[in-house]
Design a protein around this nucleic acid. Sequence first.
DNA 1: ACCTGAACACCGTTCAAGT
DNA 2: ACCTGAACACCGTTCAAGT
Lengths: 209, 209
Amino acid sequence: MGRPPRRLLTADWIADEALKMVDESGDFTMPGIAGRLKVRPSSLYNHVSGRSEIIELLRARMMAQIDVEQVRERAAEWPELVLGIAREYRRSYAQHPRLIPLLTATTVQTEVAFGMYNALADAFTDAGFAPAEVLHAITSVDSYVLGSALDVAAPEEVWATPPEAGEAMRAAVSAAGTMIGRADAAFEFGLQALVRGLVVLAEPVAAPE
Amino acid sequence: MGRPPRRLLTADWIADEALKMVDESGDFTMPGIAGRLKVRPSSLYNHVSGRSEIIELLRARMMAQIDVEQVRERAAEWPELVLGIAREYRRSYAQHPRLIPLLTATTVQTEVAFGMYNALADAFTDAGFAPAEVLHAITSVDSYVLGSALDVAAPEEVWATPPEAGEAMRAAVSAAGTMIGRADAAFEFGLQALVRGLVVLAEPVAAPE
DNA sequence: ACCTGAACACCGTTCAAGT
DNA sequence: ACCTGAACACCGTTCAAGT
């Protein structure tokens, strides 16, 4: 007991174990993290202020995975930039789908997402949107990606054997029945629709026919 | 003690109080509900199986508020049907924004949402989408609405005084600064974009120019 | 049938005591 | 500076005891 000869903990290691627990069980607990690190729960408080800080650390990790600059370089036109950022953003979340409900329970810390929001703001300003519309467009993309990420966490059986499904619904489900990566395909489909719609909205007035 | 002369509890009353607690504090607890109903926590288990059933009751309430048939009657073309359902869906969630994180933590019970999914399936089939695409389109709308609903729960200050905002971002935020109902406007904006994009995708091949 | 009281296993968090 | 042990106030849930 007392101070150990060598440090046993780090905020980073704590976050590591928390994320592993979330991936495995959908949640994490302080005793759970402590147990995996061969330490008592109270020791964690020497490195993090509590459970909520651990959640913020995990949120920061998700955002840190997004390489906005790389997307910026590769995108020639603004729609490509939006597509690229949305895909990166979503790819990051999709690696740990069960984490997302924990992140949405708390208010967002926008600080960590600013690189991404800035890039989107530039894109939509390029597109010719007015400032208020720029914010709406950013919010739309954000909402769509977040909602799609939640969809990844839902198990595949969500769509299995509908009880009172109509004809169109039944056809749709059976077509997708064997499809692996359905959530991925659906994300890409809807993203294409959203961005194409933004392109339409960005066009000033209809050109003469 | 012992059985009271008149019933003191109902699953519905329990759900009522749970929802009030969520609106006020963002969460509910069994002791909290019991206290409001002047009852001991253990009494609740005579009417609901536990916390998770209460959450499902609240999910069902949200879905029950959506009048799919009314939307069906008023929509002449399929895009109107999609717009109408998305708005109803989102309006229902927006009444209790803080409930949404609780609902997303658990896997969705699609049963309660089938009326809505059926209507969307019909709409997208009308639009000419192939069955697999129909499911993707439904998923897209679902994701967008859910993500937008989460946005309502975020406090307005999320966008206040950005620390390292770029020029475009700064202009966007200051334009929206005084706007009340920003989340509402953003939802409508993105929904228009999404549906217009779906219209574009639904068109078979480009007509000769 | 349905409320109560006591009990259990679990949380997150604090803090003095130790090295 | 940093881990431990004990403690606190909280949870959700079970179940025998009562009417």
